[in-house]
Amino acid sequence: MNKPQGTLDKPKLTFAQKCKTMRGQQIICTIVFLFVPLLLLFTFTYLPFFKMVQFSFYNRDYLRVRSFVGLRNYIDVFTRSDCFQALKLSLYYMVGSVFQISLALLFATILSFKVRGSRFFRGALYFPRLICGIAVGFIFKFFLNPGFVLDTLLGWIGIANTPNWLENQAINNIVLVCCSLWKYIGQNIVLFIGGIASVDPVLYEAADLDGANAWQRFKSIIIPSIRTIVVLNLILSISGALSVFEMPYVVTNGTFGTSTYFVVMNKLAHTDMKVGLASAMAVVLLVIIVLVTVIQKLVEKWLDYRENWPHDYGTKEASK
């Protein structure tokens, strides 16, 4: 029964007393403040998500459940021709996002150094991001239609016989990718400018003293310093590319082979009322996005590893 010597007896506190201690107050504050955002997160993100997963096992429309079908919806997603055909279009958008990020990096680097009117350009480049996606869609719909703005502009500089940008299947998806790029590049630029601003200016001075030119500075100082942000942007763009909706939906309404995965899903859910099947499509897409993100992370780790190991072992012989 005797307590070992040397241990302090903790004073026994009642629950009310515990609440009054510094620690107790901290916990109460945290709970109270976190409760609301967590509740919102749960009600509007997790609950609908769980419901969607549940829906995906049923044959149902919005108002009525017909029957439990087990995995049939998932089997349908993989055996139908249109779902994965639509996913192939995402390749256009993925290639586009690589261009988008390179271009954003270029603009961000230029705008981070002293350029006349750089504030104006930052604003101008970010501006499209502020316009509602549907409105951007309508802008491009009128911009690209035969005989409208783009054709007129090209006519002025002597280019006649333009193709029909939205109906020619060789180019219409590329045109739509360019529209997305115009809208979303501002986001990337802002993130990159933020990243570049956090680079220690001393590094540039040191590089200047060593006689580094602009390209060398970019390659050896900026890129390594903001690599996390580049990767973040890549992940966001790739998952964005898998779930493109606004542009093809508004500009072409999925016609002429521009129907992306989301456009197909939207039609199945809202006009054919196959809510179960559409939910299964959404779950499959989620799994694909998670996979792609994990693969990207792994590639990044591998690059890290490859870059670092010669230095770790300091084997000058090996690098010769």
Binding site: E167, G254, T255, G257, K267, D272, K274
Partner: peptide, 26 residues
Amino acid sequence: NRESELSLDADQSHVQRIVEAVITGN
């Protein structure tokens, strides 16, 4: 109508497909 995914009277994509077929020749 829904099961066939044609969604006659509710969705236009099957009618648009006729026009697309002429233009693209697919």
